[in-house]
């Protein structure tokens, strides 16, 4: 339903963005952490209600949207409520991964809609970024879940020629991203997503078990940047601001976590590839 006048919509999104800033600020200090998190949830609720009230829906699409939100909530709330304390990091990894997956799918849907239209280079380029980085975060996060859960070994998994493969996946991803930027073609987008998945797997497999939480934090920042790129491509200030906030604060947090554990992010990601020790 499109019942909100445009300025009201914009103001509501601004309010949500401010809530997110205050949420991160609140989460940085023990006394205000819980309030900060609730404020973030309130901002998200405002934003979701606003988008539902300010968008024209084709046919029965509103029902599909509401149904999907309902199913998603019905899955997520019990999972988050029942999870054991010790298994919370894995759950956060899954939540992060599915967020990245959502960003990648949104990017591919946008490319499908671009077909037959004149698309600005920067719009196609930021969409390509969202697809690749979102896919990287999706499979990378699911593998970190496996490592923490014990589904796959927590020891570094170094495939033969892993370093070369990693660089090759990144190079091919860059090539596909350029192709998407120039043509805005959806099939290049699908290839780009597959390369993103491969890059995510190759990035995470060589990481040792104890370093996994730091990598989850890094992938969290990745998803933030993918969301920011989506916002850029869609002209949504809210997505741009929220994604950038998470990308920037997530990067700082990753460095802080690595420092607190006496590790370097470089060593965590590439130590095993260089044949160095990632034990610990």
């Amino acid at each position: 339903m499109n019942v909100l006048p445009s300025p009201v919509t914009e103001l509501a999104y601004l309010a949500a963005a401010v809530c997110f800033i205050l949420a991160l600020k609140g989460l940085s200090s023990p006394r205000s952490a819980r309030r900060g998190n609730l404020l973030g949830a309130a901002g998200a609720a405002v934003a979701v209600v606003t988008v539902l009230l300010s968008t024209d829906f084709e046919g029965a699409n509103l029902a599909v949207v509401l149904g999907s939100v309902g199913v998603g909530s019905a899955v997520a709330v019990p999972a988050a409520r029942r999870v054991k304390m010790t298994e919370m990091p894995q759950l956060v990894a899954i939540f992060n991964g599915v967020g990245g997956g959502a960003a990648a799918i949104v990017g591919i849907m946008e490319l499908a809609e671009f077909a037959g239209h004149d698309v600005k280079l920067v719009v196609a380029g930021t969409t390509a970024f969202a697809v690749f980085v979102g896919a990287t975060s999706l499979l990378g996060s699911l593998l970190t879940f496996g490592k923490l859960q014990g589904t796959i070994t927590s020891r570094p998994i170094v495939l033969p020629g892993a370093g070369v493969l990693l660089v090759a996946a990144l190079g091919a991803g860059l090539g596909a991203a350029v192709a998407v930027t120039l043509t805005a073609d959806v099939w290049f987008g699908v290839v780009l997503a597959l390369l993103g998945l491969a890059f995510g797997a190759l990035l995470v497999l060589p990481v040792g078990g104890a370093d996994v939480p730091i990598v989850i934090s890094l992938l969290n920042a990745f998803t933030g940047l993918a969301v920011a790129a989506s916002g850029w491509a869609m002209g949504s200030t809210l997505l741009l601001v929220a994604g950038t906030l998470v990308g920037a604060s997530g990067t700082i947090l990753t460095l802080a976590m690595a420092t607190a554990m006496g590790r370097s992010v470089n060593g965590i990601l590439f130590g095993a590839l260089k044949g160095g020790s990632t034990a610990g």
Binding site: G40, A44, N61, G231
Partner: peptide, 21 residues
């Protein structure tokens, strides 16, 4: 903080609703 920031990028939901609409 990581978990809270993680929740915030779930706001891609707004983008997903926009393209699905």
């Amino acid at each position: 903080l990581m978990s809270g920031a993680n929740a915030i990028h779930g706001i891609i939901l707004v983008g997903a609703v926009m393209v699905t609409a």
